[in-house]
Amino acid sequence: MTTGRRFCSDSRNGHTLRVDTLLQTLKDGLTIGSLYALIALGYTMVYGILKFINFAHSDIVVLGAWLSLVIATAIVKALGLEAGQTAPWWVGPFVLLCAMLVCGLIGFTIERLAYKPLRKAPKLNVLITAIGVSLFLQNTGQLQFVFGTRPQPIPSLLSDQVLFAIGNMQVRLLDLVVIGTAFVLMIALEWLVFHTKLGRAMRAVSFDVRTAGLMGIPVDRVISITFVIGSSLAAAGGFLWALSFTSIKQPADTSWVLLGLKAFVAAVVGGIGNVRGAMFGGLAIGMLEVFGQQYINPALKDVYVFAALIVVLLVKPGGILGKATVEKV
């Protein structure tokens, strides 16, 4: 393994039923779950409005992660820091903001150029276009003068500090930063969607595009804004993901697609199209994965996630927080 995970301290030492192990697992689940939730929000918002699975979303996450790496490396170089030295505190937030801005812009461009001409096309066409966009982003990223085809180490932006520990359970600064950032962003989105005029417009468009348009809502603009918000949340997810590892994988690596798929599963489990559902689903999927890994069989951690998906769809097809919809003729 070239990629060491920074926040998952290895606690699999046989004492699986100890309280500190349980707490450690809970904390890991919370960390990874909040990342899934951030990414799931992008899927769920786009699905809620345009009713298609945006397969290019996971590539925006990759872009966010790699942009963070490139920007962070440049700053560290400009500051003249040596390898292994931790950057000053303001570098992290600055990198995060840059990545979110650029990804938001790219999300906007993609929507305008690729998805907008297909507003009235069959759903499958939009989906193929999304796959095309995903292939495009992946392979552009793989070019030698863009990001290259090799995993790269990311400079350390946070000191590797243990804040407190209970037995085997350690809470690091990194865990707090990941969970904290994710929750701040999610609360901000919650406020935006449920307490502003823009949020009301977004909900209206997702409820019924045509009627929303008749009521004077600028549908195209709302869709564009949705893409920008979803893409910047994805960038934040990518940044936090990059922060959690010592190095990040090349853009076309399958682990990225798997990350995107799990986030999508989280969105479905929570109830696709439902913003709170995506947050809840992300945490649930993260917990499920980490607990399954710790207490059942670590090799099957992907199986738990997808099995949970199938079980939820069989029992409650609308998702845990979703409402059952009745089709009108």
């Binding site: 193929i128 276009t129 796959i131 095309g132």
Partner: peptide
Amino acid sequence: SEYRLIIYALALIVMMITRP
């Protein structure tokens, strides 16, 4: 050959838009 998948992806997107 380095760009072939990019060209392929673009062709796919253009095709979907112009001849759905």
